[in-house]
């Protein structure tokens, strides 16, 4: 399945946001997920099945002034 993650086209295994985060080995605590321009709270990650063409932003808070 083809999606866009952080501006890059990517082929991923179909599944939920939760599964995608897990497969990528990302630490959920530090992660902010935006799915098709909408922020998805962590408790909803397992409820959203990714679709062909979805656009995801995987973000985190960092130091800044």
């Amino acid at each position: 399945m083809n999606v866009t993650i952080n501006g890059q086209p990517e082929r991923i295994v179909p599944g939920t946001i939760e599964e995608m985060v897990c497969r990528k080995g990302l630490q959920p605590e530090a992660l902010v997920v935006e799915h098709n321009q909408e922020v998805v709270p962590r408790e909803r990650w397992s409820h959203i099945a990714l679709q062909e063409g979805d656009v995801l932003e995987l973000l985190r808070f960092v130091g800044g002034g």
């Binding site: 990302l26 530090a30 973000l59 985190r60 808070f61 960092v62 800044g64």
Partner: peptide, 19 residues
């Protein structure tokens, strides 16, 4: 206190600044 938002960088530390 200010914080910034960025795309994740797989090479970077995955520490959460908010912690």
């Amino acid at each position: 206190i200010t914080v910034a938002l960025r795309r994740i960088d797989s090479s970077a530390r995955s520490e959460n600044i908010l912690d």
